[in-house]
Computed example of a mutant assay.
Amino acid sequence: MNSVLQSPEVLRYTAFSDDPEGGNPAGVVLDATGLGDAEMLAIAAEVGYSETAFLTAPSDGADSGRSWSTGRAYTIRYFSPKAEVPFCGHATVAAAVALGERLGPGDLVFFTRAGTVPVTVKQEGGATQATLTSVEPSVEEIAAGDLDEALAALDWPAGDLDPSLPPRIAYAGARHLVLAAATRERLARLTYDFARLEALMHRLDLTTVQLVWRAAAEVFHVRDPFPVGGVVEDPATGAAAAAFGAYARELGVVPEAAVLTLHQGEDMGRPGVLTVELRAGDRRVRVGGAGARIPA
């Protein structure tokens, strides 16, 4: 890797697809030593993806010398073109795939601003796959006035919501408002007031709005407006998928132990697939998918 004191090497990977034209692209800087906040933000803005991940050795040196077979630890930070975010699932997967291609399959530990996130990398069907384990999740209700404002910004009539999937704010490293569409057609029509939704999201400390439509018992189509990151829509959102897994279990939408399939990016022409695993007796949520390097 190049020394970041000279010029950081910025890799580009897609997450949740083995096709560089699918999934969600992320920038990855595997050695961000010496970069300050302003420099990382400038790099993320230049890359132009919804997030870029910046990795360094843990500041206290813990775990940094362990062998790959027992886990390799990194501090990781995430920047959108406009701001730092506490946790980003697709950039985590992208960074893990990039490391896995260099070091081989195995376990990683990422120290994020939201908490410690273990990641497992493996080879499957000729593709590199990464699965992250979320921090402790939580789910809370949204105030009626805030919900009305979100629907107004999205231009969604309340009658277009699926009553079996009530609105909630869910957290698994970052906060997301979960809104369920009653039909696939409603989900497909996404035009919204960027500034109005952005203002509400800043006030509620939301990273994205997780729009969902239930296609089958454990199959969902999802979309994620991301105006707070300077992006109209995120093509595949691992943090929101983890939050949605917590939501689905908390509300009894799915069994305590379940494997959910989330399809995202189809309406953007960048299809991706996110696998969300819920385990009995473990509140944390596992989110996995393939990744691939985007050619320069």
Rank of each mutant, 00 (worst) to 15 (best):
A127H: 10
T128A: 01
Q129V: 15
Q129P: 07
A130S: 01
L132N: 12
L132M: 15
L132F: 14
T133Q: 13
T133F: 00
S138M: 05
S138E: 10
I142F: 05
A144D: 13
G145T: 15
D146A: 13
L147T: 14
L147A: 09
D148R: 09
A150H: 12
A153G: 11
A153F: 05
D155N: 15
W156E: 08
W156P: 06
A158H: 02
L161S: 09
P163G: 15
S164M: 13
L165G: 03
A172M: 06
G173E: 11
R175V: 06
A180Y: 00
A180C: 02
A182N: 11
R184A: 14
E185K: 08
R186N: 00
A188T: 14
T191P: 03
T191R: 10
F194G: 09
A195D: 14
R196Y: 05
L197A: 02
L200A: 01
R203N: 12
L204K: 08
L204W: 01
L206T: 06
L206G: 14
T207P: 09
T207F: 02
V209F: 05
Q210M: 10
L211G: 14
A215H: 12
A216N: 01
A217G: 07
F220W: 05
H221A: 11
V222P: 02
V222W: 02
V222A: 08
V222C: 14
R223S: 10
P227F: 01
V228H: 09
V228L: 01
G229M: 08
V232D: 10
A236C: 03
T237K: 07
G238Y: 04
G238M: 09
A241M: 05
A243G: 14
F244I: 09
F244A: 03
Y247D: 10
Y247V: 00
R249I: 05
L251C: 12
V254W: 02
V254N: 07
A258M: 07
V259C: 11
